[in-house]
Nucleic acid binder design. Sequence first.
DNA 1: AACGCGAATTGACCCAAATCAAGTGGCAAC
DNA 2: GTTGCCACTTGATTTGGGTCAATTCGCGTT
Lengths: 248, 248
Amino acid sequence: MAHDDVHPVSLACGDCPIRHRAVCARCETDELEELESIKYYRSFEAGQTVIWSGDKMDFVASVVSGIATLTQTLEDGRTQMVGLLLPSDFVGRPGRESATYNVSATTDILMCCFRRKPFEEMMERTPHIAQRLLQMTLDELDAAREWMLLLGRKTAREKIASLLSIVARRDASIKLRASAGRMTFDLPLTREAMADYLGLTLETVSRQISALKRDGVIELEGKRHVTVPDMDRLLIEAGDDSDGGLLA
Amino acid sequence: MAHDDVHPVSLACGDCPIRHRAVCARCETDELEELESIKYYRSFEAGQTVIWSGDKMDFVASVVSGIATLTQTLEDGRTQMVGLLLPSDFVGRPGRESATYNVSATTDILMCCFRRKPFEEMMERTPHIAQRLLQMTLDELDAAREWMLLLGRKTAREKIASLLSIVARRDASIKLRASAGRMTFDLPLTREAMADYLGLTLETVSRQISALKRDGVIELEGKRHVTVPDMDRLLIEAGDDSDGGLLA
DNA sequence: AACGCGAATTGACCCAAATCAAGTGGCAAC
DNA sequence: GTTGCCACTTGATTTGGGTCAATTCGCGTT
């Protein structure tokens, strides 16, 4: 309902919290200055839609803070999340006129937007940007492929355990804590969003979370706050690697 | 069983059938010459494994001819295809030591391989390569996301219809024929490979193909040769867009 | 012509997850 | 403190696709 949108704030790139992880990570000072000249900030409230699939999109952007989702829909309303956007993640595709997915804010978010045309031109001239974007895109492709394995072959219980371990791992990496043994974190998603992520119904999500709780794999405080007493146990439930991914 | 591998043939890049669609598409003559110096050909027979997930991989490559698959596996043997590699598609990730997926030849294939280290160095210096690779990777990411919608939300019948329409569309684009009305093509995959692609069992694939035949959506000649009398009908069965994707 | 073999089909049965339908619990508004 | 709303839970029932098992269909070999 609210509009917010174009933001008064103008953060200097040097002070930006995602400076070293976003699409601008490899940029030199002079390149940053050029980016500054084509950037602007927009913010959205939790629940708002950032862009509708098919809409004209005259910018690309980085998520500065908060969480957003990419979703695809069949006409009869079935929806599948195809991307989870965390701080530093990139939205939009250079060279593409219109959006191919719905983008929605899950929490309040702040986005650093670049006007598309100037950004594309700059990308042609600035290998640092194209190189970084390539790296990020390859990472996303890997994530998408892992997700495909989950969607195609895992059971509901394994899907939930996988999602929990992904959130736990991410949370640990932000807080710089080891992702082993006992862990605690908040679920940034509603049951429905989890269902859309995992290709399940929200009822099944709820039941499986209850089952994992009953079996002592997780502990719950309220609906969203999760404690994992034994991370290895959770990883086994997720069905990935028997060895908690210590190698490689 | 057979070994083939390093190929005696040395095709000049100028005469290469995938010259204008592969990772080298944007390269100038001098850049091509440099690529020539680090490239070599390898061929594999249908059914052979090109690389095992986790193996050291000291090359990246383009598929020149034939079809290969990328698959991921859970320890208990459940497998999911996560990529279908057609001529001009790229295999391997610059900057990564070892393979993350199993790559197998579905038909006999020929691959144009580049030694990884020199390729990576060249990519740093040659924006044309990084730019093209970015474009290709973004396309693959889009394909992966469409695939995720299929895996997460489509019914078995819709999955089969979607796969058939993908194959039909690709076949039409190669033969430069309109992809409307009556169409005929060969399935390049076994029932099992289709099942791995779609997150189904091979029995379900077989049953749904029989059902589509029974309902007149497709006609079969042998196991592999398919005729679609009405492409629009198939697209409706696939569940994507009610309007056969005429817009955009 | 008989054999063997892998790919595919078909049937009978079963089960995990979807669907349909009540409830519960927390919290903001009046 | 009552009302209403929304996110979530839980139960009963159905069902789509998986599992197990038997054939069948090419097709190359001898």
